[in-house]
């Protein structure tokens, strides 16, 4: 694919704060027309990356292509075509929701004042805030502020939407609405780049993902590609663990015997080897099988394997 086939493309993008690399040389490639998930635990460098994409922060090194331009050099030409929600919504609390959107719309010199009212109202309707448009924004709930932030990204037709944690603070119904919205925008041809720390959310919305961990891009590809990279396991409960081990060795696997529980486990590391083949081989060898369990690699296993387990925020 040539560069114009990508809505976002970075090469060696790096951001160093003091002596710490918040983003350490990432090569993102977001094809046009995709719903692209940008996944990673809190503090893994997602928002810093997004700030650099949008020209809010200067990259320490590396290049950024955004749509048909280079950031930050072509910001004036490119950014009007990009809608963004960055690190949560921001509002003027003393203005109404509608006045907030008018303010942000006026900041873009390319937007037409004559269509402003219509576009602001359409964006408010689209996120379900039509009834609260004239309410002062400081009275908005967290979820309403989030909706206002999304509406701001939709003020004009965009070629690319960059949404940082779009479902933050939304109730389950709001989350579902955002998913529908993203799908319908994607159907219109908009490229959507969604960051999230929630795997389930990304799995439901996105066709491609990239995974960040501690400032590095540890995986990138379609969901299926990522799933395939993980390997399935078999877990056999048997009174003949040594026999079972011999059979598995014969299949080219590296079984582990957990003697006390009469359990043998093995990664299905041989390409094309299916769990049922393993089972047949065990039966043929007259190994008495009490329990047989095959677990496919879930995306969650893969995510945890890539980003590490536990609650520690990457420092």
């Amino acid at each position: 694919m040539s560069t114009t086939d990508f809505a976002i493309r970075t090469r060696g993008l790096t951001k160093v704060f003091g002596r710490q690399a918040a983003v350490g040389g990432i090569d993102l490639a977001v094809p046009r027309g995709t719903v692209f998930g940008f996944l990673g635990p809190n503090g893994s460098g997602k928002t810093t990356t997004i700030r650099m994409l949008l020209g809010l922060a200067t990259a320490t090194s590396g290049e950024i292509d955004l749509l048909d331009g280079e950031m930050p050099r072509d910001a004036r030409a490119v950014l009007p075509r990009v809608g963004a929600l960055v690190e949560g919504p921001a509002i003027y609390p003393f203005l109404s929701g509608r006045a907030n959107l008018r303010r942000f719309d006026a900041a873009d010199r390319h937007t037409s004042p004559s269509t402003r009212t219509a576009r602001v109202d359409a964006a408010l309707e689209r996120v379900g805030l039509g009834h609260a448009a004239n309410k002062r924004a400081h009275a908005y709930s967290l979820g309403m502020k989030q909706r206002l932030g999304i509406a701001n990204a939709l003020l004009a037709p965009r070629d690319l939407l960059i949404l940082d944690e779009p479902t933050n603070g939304l109730d389950p119904q709001g989350t579902r609405e955002v998913r529908h919205l993203i799908r319908s925008l994607s159907d219109d041809g908009t490229t959507i780049f969604v960051s999230s720390h929630l795997l389930a959310e990304v799995e439901q919305m996105c066709s491609m993902i990239a995974v960040m961990s501690a400032g590095r891009l540890v995986a990138q590809g379609t969901l299926d590609e990522l799933r395939d990279e993980g390997t399935a396991r078999v877990r056999i409960t048997t009174p003949d663990p040594l026999e079972a081990r011999r059979v598995l060795l014969g299949l080219g696997l590296a079984p582990e015997v957990h003697g006390r529980d009469d359990v043998v486990t093995a990664q299905l590391s041989v390409p094309g080897l299916l769990p049922e083949t393993v089972n047949t081989a065990l039966v043929r060898a007259e190994v008495r099988v009490r329990g047989f369990e095959a677990s496919g690699a879930s995306l969650e296993d893969r995510f945890v394997a890539l980003t590490g387990e536990g609650f520690d925020v990457a420092g």
Binding site: L56, L79, P80, A84, V86, F104, A107
Partner: peptide
Amino acid sequence: TLRYLLVAP
């Protein structure tokens, strides 16, 4: 709001 004014741009 500064970030949204600048992103507008």
